[in-house]
Design a protein around this nucleic acid. Structure first.
Lengths: 186, 186
DNA sequence: AGCGTTGGCCAACAAGCGTTGGCCAACAGT
DNA sequence: ACTGTTGGCCAACGCTTGTTGGCCAACGCT
C-alpha cells in the first residue's frame, strides 16, 4: 500500500484545474500554463507529475457515467429514468461537457469516449433489449440522442434547447430512448 | 457586376483547403501554414485574401444545409425524408463535420451553427408542426437527434453507429424526428 | 545535528504560431 | 514600349506553446 505524499494536494489541485480547463476550452486551448496558473503552481510541476500534456489529459479524464442499476425497474420506465439520470450527471459537473469537447478534436479523447460508452452504457443495453446481440447498436442509438441533446444544450447552447426544463427534455427524449432500447427492430 | 480576377483560382483553392483542414482538425489545429501548404501557395496569401484566420474561417464556413421543400409531401413521411437528406448532406462533403468540430471549440463556430439551424431548420418546423409557436423547440429537438447521430457516426466514430447502413439509420431515427415535429406535446 | 529525499520555482530552450512588409515577375492599358 | 497594377514569394517579427534542467528550501529520518 502506498502512503500519502506531501504533494498529494498539489496533484489534486492540478487535476481539478485540468478538468475545468479541458472542459471549458477543449484540448488545444487548455494550455499547461493556464492550468498551472489555476492550480497556483509552476507549469513544470505539471510535467513532473503527469509526464506530458497527454498524460495529464489521460489522468484528468477518468470518467464515470455513474449509471444506476436498473434491476427491479418496470421495463417501460427505463427511457425516462435514463434520460433523467444523464441530465443530472451532465449538470452535476462539467466533466462530461469536457469529454465531449475533447472527444471532438482529439484522437485520444474520442477513444476515451468510445470506451466509456461501450463499457458503461453497453451492459445496460444488454440487460434490457430484446436480443443481446443487438445491444451495441441500441446503445449507440441511445448515445446519439443523449449526446446530441448534451451538444445542443450545454455546448452549442441552442436557445430553445437551453430554455427547456429538465422535465420537458425527459418527456420528449424518454420515449425515444425507450424505443431505441426495447422496441423490436423497425 | 464584378469581373473575374486572375487570382480567383487561388482564392478558391485556399477556401477548399481551409474547409478540409477545419473539418479534419478543428479550428485551433487547422493552421494557416498547413492550409497554405495544401493549397500550394504561400501563407501570406491567405492573409492577403482573407484578412486573418477568423476571416478565413468565416468565408470557409458558409453553410447550406440544402434542405428540400416539403410542400406536397405526405405529412407522415417527413421524418424519414429529413433524416435521409441529412445523411446525404453529411456524407456529400465534410463541411458539416467541420462545422460540428469547430462549433464545439470555437465561439464563432457555435454562433454560426445556431444561425444555420435557426434559419434553415426553423422554417421547416414552422411549416409542419401543430403550433408554430412551438417550432423553435421542435427544431431544436430534431437538431439534437440529427447532430447526435452525426457526432457518433462521423466524428467519434462509435463502431456500431458507423456500421449501420443509411437505411437502418433512417428506419430508427425517422420516427423520432417525425414525432419531434408532428406529435402533440407530451 | 546531519543528510538524503521530496516539493517547488526559475530561466531557458526549440518549435510552431499568426501576421507583416518588402521585393520581384507577370500582366494589362495606353 | 512604358507604366501602373496585380499575384506571388521570402524573410522576418513577436508571441505562445510544451518541455527541460538546475537550483533552493523544507521535510523526515537516524
Amino acid at each position: 500500500m502506498t502512503t500519502a505524499r506531501r504533494s498529494d494536494a498539489t496533484r489534486a489541485a492540478i487535476l481539478e484545474a485540468a478538468r475545468e480547463r479541458f472542459a471549458e476550452d477543449g484540448y488545444e486551448r487548455a494550455t499547461i500554463r493556464a492550468i498551472a496558473r489555476d492550480a497556483a503552481i509552476d507549469p513544470s510541476m505539471v510535467m513532473r507529475y503527469y509526464g506530458n500534456k497527454e498524460g495529464l489529459f489521460a489522468a484528468a479524464s477518468e470518467i464515470d457515467l455513474d449509471l444506476p442499476a436498473l434491476g427491479g425497474l418496470p421495463a417501460r420506465h427505463i427511457g425516462a429514468v435514463l434520460v433523467t439520470h444523464f441530465l443530472d450527471r451532465w449538470e452535476r459537473d462539467d466533466v462530461l461537457t469536457g469529454m465531449l469537447r475533447v472527444g471532438v478534436t482529439n484522437t485520444a479523447g474520442a477513444e476515451r469516449m468510445r470506451a466509456v460508452f461501450a463499457e458503461q452504457l453497453g451492459p445496460i443495453a444488454r440487460g434490457v433489449c430484446p436480443d443481446p446481440a443487438e445491444a451495441p447498436r441500441r446503445a449507440a442509438l441511445v448515445a446519439s440522442q443523449v449526446l446530441g441533446m448534451a451538444l445542443a444544450r450545454y455546448v452549442l447552447r441552442l436557445p430553445p434547447a437551453v430554455e427547456m426544463s429538465t422535465d420537458e427534455v425527459v418527456a420528449w427524449l424518454g420515449p425515444t430512448v425507450q424505443r431505441y432500447l426495447t422496441d423490436p427492430e423497425p
